[in-house]
Design a protein around this nucleic acid. Structure first.
Lengths: 156, 156
DNA sequence: CAAATTTGGTTTCTTAACGCAACTCTATTT
DNA sequence: AAATAGAGTTGCGTTAAGAAACCAAATTTG
């Protein structure tokens, strides 16, 4: 996070970025979705400094993305698990993953083969869809009440 | 951006975050999707410092998300427009927007009413879908070749 | 034509965040 | 009882973010 806070911004994207918009938070959420739950595992998998990890986990818990669960088990006492709010970031993370795979592919990396447990089939690319379920782009949409974007510059 | 670079990370999410994962970049892309193109407009709409805006625009151009177009027009010489790569962030931005609207609603803000130009109908929530087009959650997927996430901790 | 403005950008300087390493504290294993 | 692991905290140096001032070219204004 930077110094500029957007908690009170009137833009929900800005507020969302305020919660998960820094370097590490989304990666933590990503790994949490992959099944990581414990402090040391996050630390080793991400290669993140411990104090930063502390800070990010605390903030994610504070924002309701993760919950801290006390598990009194063989030396490991806490687990960080996704809340519903956190799990709801699934489309965001997957969309970002697919974007990265498409536009910045690594030669030595397979482009994420996520599959449906029920069917074993690969998932579809995340896309924005209209009411009929057809994929649409940024050029196909408008915000009612505003001049159509692209035709003319917005007043402010 | 922070000091730790992920250009060479073997995770495409990390690499994606390397390009648009800081505070401002995604907001710039968002506003570009709303139709903003000129330096001063970005600056005023976002309330961003000019040097940071310079830096972010340059980086986004460098990464192929925006392109800088010289338009010799009444004192404004450049426009920053989305490339296809940039427009392809549409699902990411919308998913993030919808997540923010859902989980951090602002009392005085309407939760984004994006509509299809063709039909005038609102768009659907961005979701991850299986091969049949059914929405699925993080719990419904697995990565082939790995132990099923959630059942047991991954080796690394 | 000269002065003020606009646009896009650079420089300077302060402040805050990042990252490493070392240290702490509790619980567990040996 | 000593050693180890998990989960942090503290200190400190490095680096990036941010505000504000300054710059230069083109444009508008008077």
């Amino acid at each position: 996070m930077a110094r500029k806070r957007f908690d009170d911004s009137n833009c929900s994207v800005a507020r969302a970025l305020n919660q998960v918009g820094d370097w590490w938070s989304l990666l933590i959420v990503l790994h949490a979705m992959y099944g990581t739950r414990r402090f040391v595992d996050f630390q080793q998998e991400l290669g993140i400094a411990k104090n930063i990890l502390c800070d990010r986990l605390a903030r994610l818990v504070e924002n309701g993305v993760l919950k801290k669960v006390d598990v009194g088990e063989h030396g490991s006492r806490f687990e960080y698990r996704l809340t519903e709010k956190g799990r709801d970031l699934f489309p965001v993370v997957i969309a970002l993953r697919q974007w990265g795979d498409k536009w910045n592919p690594a030669p030595d990396e397979v482009p994420l083969d996520l599959r449906d447990k029920a069917t074993g089939q690969p998932i579809q690319p995340v896309q924005v869809q209209n009411a009929k379920g057809e994929p649409i782009t940024v050029r196909d949409v408008f915000v009612p009440g505003e001049p159509v974007p692209g035709s003319k510059k917005r007043p402010a």
